[in-house]
């Protein structure tokens, strides 16, 4: 046994203050019970342990506290947010109403007179049963390649009244007529028969049911003016853009295939209003 009557005080004070190692506690407790006088001393010492008087409190804590910064909720933000929300709602409703207004009138594309819309020769009526579609007329307008004209040196006095036509254009037209003497632009098989087809001298016209279908014909057909009405879901702006991209790709394809095509114009009409003119030059 480590604890004895000669060294117990050191263990006693540790045991009294709960500082005695846990492995020594049983041994010391046994020592206490075997030594009544030391146990009595321990009881007296234990009575000297003070307990805090909880009635004593520091009553001036307010002197110690620091004021925390008040969390000021920015009220003006709420006002601006409310205004923004109302405006957004109005814009959304207005936009929706505008779109529906444009869709609901059953647009039937009517051919315009040449004076007002000279390039559109044929129009395909929009299907009436699709109320949610936007009728879009697509006109692909391609012109023949032109060489920089070289005006002949002529006596202005002699040719005062005569129109001055570039020599190369005249020659080119003659050449083309010689090369394709019997070529008359005929209606593409893709074109519905009900659609009138009016060929033009310089700008033949063809109507395509599907804009991505390019009729393989002569150069004259590529010099075409195409009018079609394509149903499109109106509520999707993305769909319109996708549609236009297809048309643009088509015109580019035409240009690539035929070297003589100098420029291609893509005209998109909503109703009778031209909303887009892409010069794919």
């Amino acid at each position: 046994m480590i604890i004895n009557e000669n060294n117990y005080e050191e263990f006693l004070v540790d045991y009294l203050h709960n500082e005695l190692a846990s492995d020594l506690v049983p041994e010391f407790e046994l020592f206490l019970h075997t030594h009544p006088s030391i146990l009595e001393e321990y009881i007296l010492l234990k009575e000297t342990i003070l307990t805090p008087d909880t009635d004593i409190v520091f009553e001036k804590k307010e002197l110690l506290y620091k004021e925390e910064p008040a969390i000021l909720f920015p009220v003006y933000w709420i006002k601006y947010l409310a205004i923004a929300a109302v405006l957004s709602g109005i814009l959304f409703i207005g936009y929706t109403f505008l779109i529906k207004t444009k869709i609901q009138p059953s647009f039937v594309a009517q051919p315009k007179s040449e004076s007002t819309l000279p390039n559109i020769d044929t129009v395909i009526p929009t299907p009436q049963n699709k109320k949610d579609s936007i009728p879009i007329n697509v006109v692909i307008h391609s012109t023949q390649q032109k060489v920089n004209p070289i005006l002949p040196k002529v006596n202005l006095l002699q040719h005062r009244m005569a129109p001055q036509v570039p020599v190369d254009i005249v020659q080119q037209e003659k050449k083309e007529k010689q090369q394709t003497p019997n070529e008359v632009v005929t209606q593409s098989p893709l074109i519905p028969h009900s659609i009138p087809y009016i060929p033009n001298k310089r700008e033949d016209t063809i109507a395509m049911a599907q804009p991505e279908i390019v009729p393989e014909k002569s150069n004259h057909i590529l010099m075409m003016q195409d009018t079609t009405a394509v149903p499109l879901i109106a509520s999707t702006e993305k769909g319109i853009l996708k549609f236009i991209n297809k048309i643009a790709a088509l015109t580019h394809q035409i240009k690539l295939k035929k070297e003589k095509i100098k420029q291609t114009n893509l005209l998109v009409f909503v109703g009778n209003t031209k909303i887009l003119n892409i010069n794919n030059n």
Partner: peptide
Amino acid sequence: YNQQVKMHADDLYR
């Protein structure tokens, strides 16, 4: 800091 005041001020004062 205020929490520390609340928790320990009485003990220190006592």
